[in-house]
């Protein structure tokens, strides 16, 4: 059994806005094991992106990390609390240990510089290369690894000369350039078309195998979860609803939210006469409902759900849920 590379304990990220304190992530705990693909799935504003950014303290004001721990296993096997590190060390960790790939590849690349320059810049910052020539060679190698067509040409191209899929390949290549151990992909395919999405997902899968990476995927698409992940965490309104192996989550969803979500997603391989929508709307996190945040939309809501927040309970092996339905009474 591999060890966790990241342990998140009771993470809290609050945004202090004019509309009040938005508890975007409010006491979330999970761990990511070495070599697995871990997915955080949830809807807009559930805190999945914020969680992934908080792992290296990439939170801008008015947001603040209000509490919790993020333990990261460094190369010597010790766990260090990321949230206690200074900005200098964190910068060193970002890229070298943990790399990010964001949703919009166009925004991740500076239009004024060539693709090759982007590689050189990141590698020079982390002392991975000694000269620009070495940087270009490494860049071509990396572009070949991410299956970029004609890497020797593309390395000299500017971002606007590349298509959406090629940009995302370049961004992935840049992310890999300092040999990180954890790759965080935040909705890496939601700007891409179906045919290109399939190519990029396939690429991520291959890279993970080849390099022994740990992959953290942030997505809203249950289809991507089913295709990619080993374990899944379902977030709802800043709370962790359910966490477990992907097969169990889909076969035996425990949390009423997960159950409802799976029923609301159309399956392209089946003829469906009626979808079952989840009633109501995602709550406003400046004034979230008390107790379990899903209770206003939950068909099984009980009195206690309105008053107390449920604790995480292990219902079957490695499959935990935060729901009063499963509490021992």
């Amino acid at each position: 059994m591999p060890e966790p590379i990241v342990i998140v304990e009771d993470l809290k990220v609050y945004f202090y806005t004019y509309a009040g304190v938005v508890r975007a992530v409010d006491g979330v705990s999970f761990e990511i094991y070495e070599g697995e693909t871990f997915c955080i799935v949830g809807e807009t504003g559930c805190g999945k992106s914020v969680t992934s950014r908080a792992l290296t303290k990439l939170i801008d004001p008015p947001g603040r990390i209000a509490g919790g721990k993020v333990l990261f296993k460094d190369r010597s096997g010790r766990y260090i609390n990321m949230l206690e590190l200074d900005e200098e060390t964190l910068r060193e960790m970002r890229g070298k240990e943990i790399a990010y790939i964001f949703q919009d590849p166009a925004a991740a690349l500076d239009p004024l510089y060539t693709i090759g320059y982007h590689f050189i810049e990141t590698m020079r910052d982390h002392g991975t290369i000694r000269s620009n020539k070495e940087g270009i060679e490494r860049a071509i190698e990396l572009l070949r690894e991410v299956a970029m067509p004609a890497p020797e040409v593309r390395v000299k191209n500017y971002p606007h000369e590349l298509s959406g899929g090629m940009k995302q390949r370049a961004v992935i290549g840049i992310g890999l350039s300092n040999m990180p151990r954890l790759l965080i992909a935040d909705e890496p395919t939601s700007y891409l078309d179906v045919s290109v999405q399939a190519q990029i997902l396939e690429l991520l899968r291959q890279l993970k195998e080849k390099r022994g990476l740990t992959l953290l995927m942030i997505t809203h698409d249950m289809g991507v979860v089913a295709e990619m992940c080993d374990r899944v965490a379902v977030l709802y309104a800043g709370h962790l609803a359910e966490i477990g192996p992907v097969d169990r989550i889909f076969m035996n969803p425990l949390h009423p939210y997960t159950q409802a979500l799976l029923r609301a997603v159309p399956n392209p391989t089946r003829r469906m006469l009626k979808l079952e929508p989840i009633p109501g709307n995602v709550p406003n996190l400046a004034s979230p409902p008390p107790g379990c945040r899903f209770h206003p939309r939950c068909p099984y809501a009980m009195d206690i759900c309105k008053r107390e927040r449920p604790k995480m309970i292990e219902v079957e092996e490695r499959h935990r849920v935060a729901c009063w339905l499963y509490a021992k009474r």
Partner: peptide
């Protein structure tokens, strides 16, 4: 045929069995 085979299916068992018709490149 390719488009239909490439949509991610919200079912991990089906996802593993399904045959994909990969198409290269972009429009």
């Amino acid at each position: 045929r390719a488009l239909i085979s490439l949509i991610p299916v919200p079912d991990p068992f089906q996802a593993r069995k399904r045959k994909k018709l990969m198409i290269q490149g972009e429009p």
